[in-house]
Design a protein around this nucleic acid. Structure first.
Ligand SMILES: Cc1cn([C@H]2C[C@H](O)[C@@H](COP(=O)(O)OP(=O)(O)OP(=O)(O)O)O2)c(=O)[nH]c1=O
Ligand SMILES: [Mg+2]
Ligand SMILES: [Zn+2]
Length: 733
DNA sequence: AGCTGCCGTCGGGGTGTCTGATTGC
DNA sequence: CTGCACGAATCAAGCAATCAGACACCCCGACGGCAGCT
């Protein structure tokens, strides 16, 4: 038997649950318990409340899904999706029903599939360098690996505190905080001057602001003076932090000469580790070759930044093991003071009176950053960068070390929509700018692809690098998308909306919760669990129906050929986000609306009643194939269009041919990527050769098939095209 | 019997509040 | 002495902000039934 150090699974509790079988427990000393646990006399089971594995002592149970959910922002976290995303290796996802069928009918293919899943998990684990990253983190924070996997940020801070305290001969007190739910004031977000900026807008951002504040002012549990102590004559040398609203009592911390805090020492170490990771990152070879390594190092740098910020967060965690709101409040208070001071310094330093060509203006800023307009549209990138670097020096000098304001990038052009919502073409050097969008729909997972991609393309046109006016192109693009949507040319795939199931009970009805309910009714065993993302489509319904009444599982909608509510997607998905953008570009909401959506007749598809059976049986009157006028049964074109008949025929043949080729291409894709090949397992019963065949309609075994929605759409259009050919009495070529 | 004014109910349209999801820092 | 049932505790970085949609509420007008009048 193998004596594993790490047991890698995609879904640990589910895997263990299946291994444990019906009783849900592996008795101490049993072979199963010994293969899962290194300790004798320990039983392995799932905890009743949170369904987590208990008793896997001595081995690391790695839950790939959980980790990836933490580290990466994706819409779909199924193993198939992860394999495609990280390794570009397709791996079908099967519904519970087809999985069961295959297990019975094609045992060797089933075994091969399970093997592929295991291999995919291992590839992803390696590709993301999880082992390397976790071991580094364990070394930096002095935290056991199992804690890093199973617990949160707090334990890392705690182990670091313990290590530092031990070195200094301190002990940590036990839970002085009585879990009150008080909160404290956070950071300042500067009021944005919203608009479309064609001139360069520079972004200046403090390096690790909160950690550097704690280091610069020696903020720590161990340096905080008791209230009132600062007024006593024997008080050691201290500094007083800026006042916080609702706190008239001053908070004071002794100077580092008196006693250096534990937290600053911890932060020094963390920031040094981050700096090392960043240095490795810059040494990484450019281009495709170093891409994977760069991603890994970037992730590591980010993880260390998170750990450093969590040191601050730890002090403000009222339910945590050692809350100290004085420290947390002082950190944010310093931060609020600093962003204001920075804004003031920039705006007072870069003035015409001070010898500069233009007055600088801070147009926005969030927590630790300022976005500066140094001059009008004519200002060159080079000049803006030169001024930015100067600003970075000037501002850094007014703050104590190690606080440092860095020049990060220049946006040109820049679209500022609201607090925490903007887009810009980011220049970190003079060439190769990249489009960045923050907070707006393109980066939000609760919008469908149609909106996310549509808006992204629009922004690409609007934020053109050469400073040209792309608004005409952008408007054209939007109108194209809207027309495609109305004509049903859009794949259902790009209309799928997904939201995470945050809780089991909802106060108000919500579409994803309703769909989760429906799924539960249809198949209780595979219903979405709390925390899972639930996908849905908005289907055509009565005109006053609420969104949650029109929501439906995409696969169900596909299989039952249910029509979508294109009006909803136009009015409630595309419209608002696009209007918000164009309103700023055009400078006028009315104008934007008419430019984008004017002349688009919104023809509502309304289902008369929920029973809705009648429509199906009503045969539509035949229409002329050229001009859509009503014609008699049997006629292909109307009287006025008879002279166009040959043209119509040619077009119909063409169209059928193109669609057939498209469909064949899509089917070929499924035949390649969505099938389960058999594997070399002679000890298993042979697969039933008949079971593999018989895909009659446009279905795909792969529940998350990337092309099934296209297939369905193209097949439907091909059906119509063939009907037209029939009416024209033509045969497909 | 038919008309008219009264009153209660229903529903549409705004408005404000709250919940929930998600993101930025 | 062992096995089992039962119960308690485990544990958790932070705040600021936007936006959609449900829901509660109000106002107002239409509608229709009813009683009273002609
Ligand atoms: C990203 C992030 C920031 N913050 C706070 C602390 C940060 O110092 C402050 C500014 O955020 P950032 O500017 O995003 O991060 P940073 O300044 O710490 O690091 P750097 O700029 O070098 O990449 O906001 C958190 O509390 N939690 C977080 O997850
Ligand atoms: Mg910063
Ligand atoms: Zn497929």
């Amino acid at each position: 038997m193998m004596d594993a150090d790490i047991i890698l699974t995609y879904d640990l509790s589910e895997t263990v649950r299946r291994m444990l079988g019906k009783k849900g427990i592996a008795k101490a000393g049993s072979p199963l318990a010994r293969s899962l646990s290194r300790r004798l006399g320990v039983e392995v089971k799932l905890t009743a409340k949170s369904n987590e594995v208990s008793g896997m002592t001595g081995r690391l149970g790695f839950d790939l899904q959980k980790q990836v959910e933490k580290d990466h922002r994706l819409v779909d976290y199924s193993l198939g999706a992860l394999s495609q995303h990280f390794c570009q290796t397709p791996l079908p996802e099967l519904s519970a029903a087809s999985l069961k069928k295959i297990r019975l009918e094609r045992p060797r293919a089933y075994a091969q599939h399970v093997l592929r899943q295991a291999e995919a998990s291992a590839s992803i684990f390696d590709r993301l360098a999880y082992l390397y990253n976790f071991i580094e983190m364990a070394r930096v924070t002095g935290c056991p690996l199992s804690y890093l996997l199973e617990r949160g940020q707090a334990i890392k801070v705690q182990t670091q505190l313990l290590r530092e305290a031990r070195a200094r001969g301190f002990v940590l007190p036990q839970r002085p905080g009585t879990g009150e739910d008080t909160t404290y004031e956070g950071a300042t977000v500067l009021e944005p001057s919203c608009g479309f900026y064609r001139c360069p807008v520079a972004v200046l951002d403090f390096a690790s602001l909160y950690p550097s504040i704690m280091m610069a002012h020696n903020l720590c549990y161990s340096t905080l003076l008791p209230p009132g102590r600062e007024k006593k004559p024997d008080c050691p040398d201290f500094t007083e932090s800026p006042p916080a609203a609702g706190n008239d009592q001053a908070t004071c911390f002794v100077k580092p000469q008196v006693r250096k805090g534990l937290l600053p020492s911890i932060l020094e170490r963390l920031l040094a580790a981050r700096k090392a990771a960043k240095a490795q990152l810059t040494q990484c070879q450019a281009g495709e070759a170093g891409a994977t390594r760069r991603k890994v190092l970037h992730g590591r740098q980010l993880a260390l930044k998170l750990s450093a910020n969590s040191v601050y967060g730890f002090t403000g965690a009222t339910n945590g093991p050692l809350p100290c709101l004085e420290v947390a409040g002082a950190v944010t208070a310093y931060g609020r003071e600093m962003i204001q001071a920075t804004k003031a310094k920039v705006e007072s330093h870069f003035t015409t009176a001070g010898g500069y060509a233009h007055n600088a203006e801070v147009v926005y800023g969030d927590t630790d950053s300022v976005m500066v307009k140094f001059g009008p549209e004519g200002l060159s990138l080079e000049e803006a960068m030169r001024l930015s670097n100067e600003a970075s020096k000037v501002c850094s000098s007014i703050f104590p070390a190690p606080v440092r304001l860095e020049f990060e990038k220049i946006y040109r052009p820049f679209l500022l929509m609201a607090k925490k919502r903007y887009a810009g073409l980011a220049f970190t050097s003079l060439s190769s700018p990249e489009l960045e969008t923050k907070g707006i729909e393109t980066v939000r997972r609760d919008w469908c692809d149609l909106v996310r991609h549509g808006l992204e393309e629009t922004l690409k046109h609007l934020l053109a690098p050469d400073g040209s006016d792309g608004s005409q192109k952008a408007i054209g693009h939007v109108r194209d998308v809207c027309n495609d949507l109305k004509q049903g040319k859009i794949d259902l795939k790009s209309l799928v909306i997904s939201k995470s199931l945050g809780r089991n009970e909802y106060a108000a009805k919500a579409p994803h919760a309703e769909v989760a309910e429906k799924l539960k009714k249809r198949d209780p065993a595979n219903a979405p669990r709390m925390g899972d993302r639930v996908s849905y489509l908005v289907l055509a319904g009565t005109s006053k129906a609420k969104v949650y009444e029109k929501a439906e599982d995409p696969i169900y909608a596909l299989e039952n050929d249910l029509p979508i509510d294109s009006d909803y997607y136009l009015e409630h998905q595309l419209k608002q986000p696009l209007l918000r953008v164009f309103e700023l570009v055009c400078g006028d909401a009315q104008k934007a609306e008419s430019l984008l959506f004017g002349g688009l007749t919104s023809q509502k598809v309304v289902v008369s009643s929920s029973k809705g059976g009648m429509g199906k049986f009503m045969k539509p009157r035949p229409k002329c194939l050229a001009c859509s006028a009503d014609v008699n049964d049997g006629a292909a074109v109307c009287a006025r269009c008879t002279d166009k008949l040959s043209e119509v025929k040619e077009h119909a043949l063409d169209r059928a041919k193109t669609l057939r080729e498209q469909l064949n291409g899509l089917r070929a894709h499924c035949d390649r990527d969505c099938v389960l090949p058999s594997g070399p397992f002679p000890q298993l019963p042979a697969d039933d050769p008949a079971a593999d065949k018989g895909e009659v309609s446009e279905r795909c075994l792969n529940a998350s098939c990337p092309v099934i929605f296209s297939r369905a759409r193209v097949a439907k259009q091909l059906g119509l095209a063939r009907e037209a050919l029939h009416r024209l009495q033509l045969k497909e070529t």
